[in-house]
């Protein structure tokens, strides 16, 4: 294996890891779509997709083949560059943030010292993609969906960022690797214990940022028939879907990294060394399942309820908890 050592050197290591992460993101999206349909099926007492392959497990493959062979239609009056650029502008930020998440000890593509800031900054670009999609389609429903989406994403960015600050204060670092290392030695050391209100706020904001039920007003099938993605078809639509589902996986991964110990095992004797990514995977999958569980259990909020929850409940709550955290750090 000597000849493979060059892969550990800088440009090659980064390119290889980047390819792996991109592969992971796209596949995660495809598999989550199937997971979503399966979970929906079992929650509604039916089987979900069960025709393609054993127990319907090859459904993602069939979906992808269908999407790739479908024609890409764009409206005649669409602003073509913006229309086609929007899915890319939605997908790239989601894929880029995966680069800073530590999967196992030492297994992180880019260990930058401002990883949390990078996550916040890059996810905020996602709103641009939503607006581009809504404007580029030149359709009233699309524009309405985009306006709702942008308003929602800007509003919930505030509690999202504020809820991270408690963890940053406790760790004293903006690096996700440091955050995970600080949570070692058993599940009682995870930040979810000390920062439980912040975890709840982060979780709800993550639901809103990924535009999932109960915050799916930008999509709103029953009122604006799909929002900013009405006019998309084929692989452009597929890319938007991939961005949404990968974003859901990403938010789960980030909340696991920040609050649930990342790759740290729940008890110390369960340490798997380099294979600790199994723990990261299990925890992330559990959070993703709760996202889907909520989707098939709750109704959609109204716009004013959405704004009330964001600005009148979650922002004050995070501010109060920040002060409490600071005071506790000063005393202990």
């Amino acid at each position: 294996m000597e000849f493979l050592n060059f892969l550990n050197q800088e440009p090659f290591r980064f390119l290889l890891a980047f390819g792996v992460v991109l592969f992971l993101t796209l596949n995660l999206a495809a598999i989550l779509v199937m997971g979503e349909r399966k979970v929906a099926g079992y929650i509604q007492l039916r089987y979900g997709p069960n025709r393609v392959g054993p127990r319907g497990l090859l459904q993602p493959l069939a979906d992808i083949i269908k999407l790739f062979t479908k024609e890409n239609i764009s409206p005649g009056k669409a602003d073509l560059w913006i229309f086609l650029g929007a899915p890319i502008a939605m997908f790239i930020p989601v894929a880029a943030v995966w680069l800073v998440i530590p999967f196992a000890p030492g297994a992180v593509v880019a260990d930058i010292n401002v990883a949390i800031l990078f996550f916040v900054a890059v996810t905020s670009i996602g709103a641009l993609g939503v607006i581009m999609a809504g404007y580029g389609s030149r359709s009233n429903f699309s524009l309405l969906g985009a306006l709702r989406g942008a308003a929602q994403m800007i509003s919930y960015e505030v509690p999202l960022i504020l809820s991270l600050l408690g963890v940053v204060m406790l760790t004293g670092s903006l690096s996700l690797v440091d955050v995970v290392n600080a949570q070692g030695g058993g599940f009682w050391n995870w930040y979810v214990v000390l920062q439980f209100p912040m975890f709840i706020v982060f979780y709800i904001s993550a639901l809103a940022e990924t535009k999932r039920v109960p915050f799916d007003l930008p999509e709103g099938e029953s009122e604006i028939v799909g929002g900013y993605m009405i006019e998309y078809s084929g692989m452009t639509w597929g890319l938007i879907q991939a961005a949404e589902f990968a974003g859901m996986g990403l938010m789960s991964g980030i909340s696991v990294t920040l609050f649930l110990g990342g790759w740290q095992p729940p008890l110390e004797f369960l340490d798997l060394g380099q294979f600790n990514w199994v723990w990261f995977g299990i925890k992330t999958a559990l959070i993703m399942f709760t996202f889907q569980w909520i989707r098939w259990s709750l109704p959609r909020l109204r716009m004013d309820q959405l704004m009330d929850l964001g600005w009148k409940v979650m922002v004050p709550l995070t501010l109060v908890w920040l002060v409490i955290t600071a005071a506790a750090m000063l005393v202990f």
Binding site: I112, L117, V120, A121, S124, I125, A150, I154
Partner: peptide
């Protein structure tokens, strides 16, 4: 200055441009 770059993205691309478009 990666921190400054992140702030640039967060404030100018993520907030200012979005609010202008809005």
């Amino acid at each position: 200055a990666p921190a400054l770059a992140a702030f640039q993205l967060l404030i100018y691309v993520g907030a200012v441009t979005v609010v202008i478009l809005f």
